[in-house]
């Protein structure tokens, strides 16, 4: 009677049968042979990683390890190879033209919110006092309102995230009731495309050619730089100071002027909304509110394709089925 336990050769053949593919058998057979030779070999096995990977690992474990965690309160950007001072504001070593500029910290945001919402100061006045862009002041107040709303509703804020992020960014803070360094340039004016052309504009030597004249030379409807800047009231205040008015008085007058201009802007907006409402008739049926507006189908422009015009016009293609979501992606969210 043959032994029940198969010999190694037969065992191997049984395994080969179970794998069932010809290519697989050769691989199965080849592998044990290699292992046998490897046990006698004294050469080191092939390195696991490619050279690039090895270099990466070497870097990440030596110089690169400082980037793993940050020290709260200071930035942690890549340092150039040969530098005698620490790089604190340049995230991309090859691009010196992009700097990481500071952001306002929690305290400064709270201060701005208090000034605008509690003390009732105008956005322009706060902007001029702290040297923060007008849009930024408005945005800070808006976001802070959302935050207060969340707190009132008991919604969990992302505090640990906020703390961590602000501790790795460069930040600026303000002290209340004190003179602060301006945060950014507030009186920046867009470079208008009309002003980017070179003009040959002959005038007499004796003529007093001011900024207003220059604007007219570029385009008849272009306003002077004094009116296009975000803070025209600030220029007026400086003029008054130069004429000998004391600073406190001039600044009071500036605040008045800022208040007045904001009031005018608000009134204008309200008038516009009221006009809109006048030409809209609303029908509320429990479930929906229908709003009907007067439209003139003739107002389609010279080519019949005006964006604001209503209705499909003969000959004008309608792109609602085209690829690329030309119509489906909204252009604005009111």
């Amino acid at each position: 009677m043959p032994p029940r336990i198969p010999t190694p050769r037969r065992a191997a053949s049984a395994i080969i049968k179970s794998t069932s593919s010809g290519a697989g058998t050769t691989r199965c057979l080849a592998q044990p042979c290699q292992q046998v030779t490897a046990s006698f070999s004294t050469t080191a096995s092939r390195p696991k990683f490619s050279k690039a990977r090895r270099m990466f690992r070497a870097w990440i474990n030596s110089h690169g390890s400082v980037f793993r965690k940050h020290v709260p309160g200071q930035t942690n950007y890549l340092q150039p190879m040969k530098a005698n001072h620490r790089n604190v504001d340049q995230p991309f070593p090859l691009n010196p033209l992009y700097k990481s500029q500071p952001v306002l910290d929690e305290k400064a945001r709270e201060l701005i919110w208090e000034k605008v919402m509690r003390n009732g100061e105008t956005v322009k006045a706060v902007s001029a006092e702290l040297g923060v862009d007008i849009q930024r002041v408005a945005a800070i107040v808006r976001l802070k309102e959302v935050e207060k709303d969340w707190t009132a509703k008991g919604k969990q804020l992302a505090r640990p995230y906020a703390r961590a992020v602000l501790s790795m960014l460069p930040t600026t803070s303000f002290r209340a009731n004190q003179q602060n360094e301006p945060f950014e340039a507030i009186n920046e004016m867009h470079v208008h495309p009309h002003t980017m052309q070179q003009l040959f504009w002959p005038t007499s030597e004796s003529r007093h050619f001011t900024r207003a004249d220059a604007a007219k030379a570029f385009h008849p409807k272009l306003l002077s730089a004094d009116e296009r800047v975000p803070h025209p009231e600030l220029i007026q205040m400086e003029k008054e100071v130069l004429q000998g008015r004391p600073l406190w008085d001039a600044s009071e007058r500036f605040k008045q002027a800022a208040m007045e201009s904001e009031r005018k802007a608000a009134a204008k907006q309200q008038a516009k909304a009221a006009l809109n409402e006048k030409y809209t008739s609303r029908v509320n049926t429990g479930r929906f509110e229908f709003r009907f507006k007067q439209f003139n189908s003739e107002n389609v422009g010279p080519k019949g394709r005006s964006r604001t015009a209503v209705g499909w016009r003969y000959g004008a293609p309608y792109y609602d089925r085209s690829k690329g979501h030309q119509i489906k992606i909204p252009m604005s969210v009111p």
Binding site: S100, V103, A139, L143, E184
Partner: peptide
């Protein structure tokens, strides 16, 4: 970690 100037971010409410 850097936030460009054209954005104003409030991290508390994301």
């Amino acid at each position: 970690a850097f936030i460009p100037k054209y954005l104003e971010v409030n991290q508390n409410v994301c």
